[in-house]
Design a protein around this nucleic acid. Structure first.
Lengths: 222, 222
DNA sequence: GCGAGGTGGCTAAGCGCATAGTCACTCGTA
DNA sequence: TACGAGTGACTATGCGCTTAGCCACCTCGC
């Protein structure tokens, strides 16, 4: 049969504690309430079942509307996904380039701050973050390109933070590219397992991963 | 339109260097050659486009057969996915429980060995590993449960290796659960970006991540 | 105050299409 | 003759998206 056999329906998802996060506060303020609720429903569906296993019906069901209502607010299902992924990446970029982080003089402090900020964001918005990491290749080639651009800029701030500490002798002479990638991996992979009702708050996890990051650059916290 | 708009066709995928790995050597020997070639084609399609964006046509095209030929060898598309994911997880488990690893007496040596083995496997078979990590929730609930069981057993070997070193004083008094998860994250996330024609061989990456693992447990290599 | 006309959110119905899977059949080999 | 591999034509179904139109509410002239 051509059934897509998504394992979870919109009804299941509304109350699933694994899918509770701060994503609903994420959407652009100039969107209407219905649009924002559609995005929140879509992000839950995409996170649980994936873009291709989610139907426009599922998304609309999640806010109690008919399937056609989606098209009053968004021109296509793909553009719903793009809006989610674009907003997610822009918010992350805004967090890691925060002036208060870049103002930190000590290389260790700056690295700690950027790793913590990145991790906290991913934990706090882990449902959206999951879609941002896992559904990238459901985007059209053009939209995918735009997102890759945002990712490169975000990653650049990480690499700079590591390279700076290596250059000024705060860190050991590590391989900047590889170590940076490892730090990103830690925070990115959290979207697979994190839940807000688990043992760690976003802030605790941010601190923990900031500690780990400093160990990775050869400067363990005593 | 209902087009699934997979961005890459089977033709594109055959020669894509990003999708070259050792997966074709992975399949059970008791399967026929056509079955193994179908699995190799499917793994490429699933890795590039995802399970739901891959059609049975795509898989069959990859080995030059008609769509119906798939059903001569496999009862359903989902069972093709399950076979791939099951074999992948069984192979990983076999690697981390290798007697030569468990025979290592020193806690640091053992952790190094298990991290390297896990990482090398994921790098060498990164296309299959990608499917194993990213397409889990396209499985039926029953099949998903079987895989989770295998994952828990694999993760148990990691946790034991960390806990042992903490207990015997080789490592610092780290949070075993969190640190273990961080180590797994490093190797798992590599399926997102690794390619065999890149800068690192699987073995080099395995050594590098083994070094990082020891730093994470507070024992940097001098 | 009140009807005419417009507007925006929403829906029921359904179109066109592509999908997973089936089946009667052929072909090659033993 | 028997059988396993493979196929072309097909079915049943579900998909994204469109269309025509409903309805509550607004605006404006009088």
């Amino acid at each position: 049969m051509a059934r897509r056999q998504a394992r979870f329906t919109a009804q299941d998802l509304v109350d699933d504690p694994r899918l509770r996060d701060h994503s609903p506060e994420l959407w652009r303020a100039d969107l209407g309430e219905v649009q924002r609720r559609l995005l929140s429903s879509a992000v839950r569906c995409f996170a649980a079942n994936g873009f291709h296993a989610t139907t426009t019906r599922d998304i609309a069901d999640g806010v109690g509307l008919s399937p056609a209502a989606l098209y009053v607010h968004f021109p296509s299902k793909e553009l719903v996904l793009f809006e989610i992924i674009r907003v997610g990446h822009e918010r992350v970029l805004a967090h890691v380039r925060d002036p208060s982080i870049l103002a930190l003089e000590g290389s260790a402090d700056r690295l700690r701050a950027i790793v913590a900020a990145y991790t906290v964001w991913h934990a706090r918005h882990h449902v959206t973050a999951r879609v941002c990491q896992m559904e990238l290749n459901a985007l059209t080639a053009e939209h995918y390109g735009e997102i890759v651009e945002l990712r490169h800029r975000t990653n650049g701030y990480f690499r700079d933070a590591v390279a700076r500490g290596v250059a000024d002798g705060t860190f050991a002479q590590v391989d900047v590219k590889r170590v940076t990638r490892a730090m990103l991996s830690l925070s990115i992979d959290l979207v697979r397992w994190y839940r807000l009702d688990g043992a760690d708050s976003p802030e605790q996890l941010g601190e923990f991963y900031a500690d780990l990051a400093l160990r990775l650059v050869g400067r363990p916290k005593e």
